[in-house]
Computed example of a mutant assay.
Amino acid sequence: MQRRAAVISNLKQVTPTRAVEWTVTDHDDRRACDWCRAHELTTWASDALGAEVCPACGRLFESPLGEPDDDSQPKRDRLPETPSDPVTPILFGTTLPEYDPTELVGSNRPLIKYREKSKYADVVCELERTGHGFSAGGLDALGAIRERYAAQVADDDSHQTDVTLSVGRTPRTVTIEGLGTNDSTGVIEECREVVSDPAYWIPLGWPQQGAIHRRAADPSIPGDDPVVDAFPRLRTQAPNQSVDVESIRRVTDPGRFERGERYYERGAVTDIERVDDQLEATVQGSRPYEVRVTFAGGNYTEGQCDCPDDTVPCKHIVAAVLASGDVPVTGGDQSLEELLATASPATLRQVCHELADEDVSVRKRLYEKLGGE
Rank of each mutant, 00 (worst) to 15 (best):
A216D: 12
P203Q: 02
L142V: 08
Y149S: 03
A151F: 09
P226E: 06
G210Y: 00
T164P: 04
V243E: 04
P171T: 04
V195F: 04
W206S: 00
I202N: 04
Q241S: 15
R146I: 04
V167K: 08
D218W: 06
A150R: 12
V245F: 04
Q237K: 08
T236D: 15
N182C: 08
I176N: 03
P232L: 01
V228F: 09
Q152W: 10
T175I: 12
T185A: 11
R172D: 05
A216H: 06
D155T: 10
W206M: 03
H159Y: 07
R146T: 08
D225L: 14
R169N: 13
S166E: 12
R192C: 05
E147D: 13
P219Q: 00
E190R: 15
L139S: 09
T185S: 07
G205Q: 06
T164C: 05
E193R: 15
S158F: 10
D197W: 09
I221W: 02
V243R: 04
I221V: 13
S158P: 04
P226W: 03
L165F: 01
E190P: 09
D218C: 03
D229S: 12
V167M: 05
E246Y: 09
T181F: 04
S166C: 03
P226C: 02
D224P: 01
A141K: 10
I145P: 09
D225P: 00
P222S: 01
G210T: 01
S242H: 10
V195K: 01
S184I: 15
A141R: 13
A217W: 10
D156T: 10
G178E: 01
G143A: 02
G205V: 08
W201S: 08
A230M: 06
Q152H: 13
W206P: 01
R169E: 14
W201I: 07
E189V: 07
Q241A: 15
I221H: 00
R214A: 13
H159W: 11
D183E: 09
C191S: 03
A144F: 06
S166D: 11
G205H: 06
V163L: 08
G186V: 12
V167W: 06
R235E: 15
G143H: 00
Q208H: 12
I202V: 15
D197H: 10
T175H: 04
D156V: 11
S242A: 14
Q152A: 12
C191T: 02
D156R: 13
V227R: 04
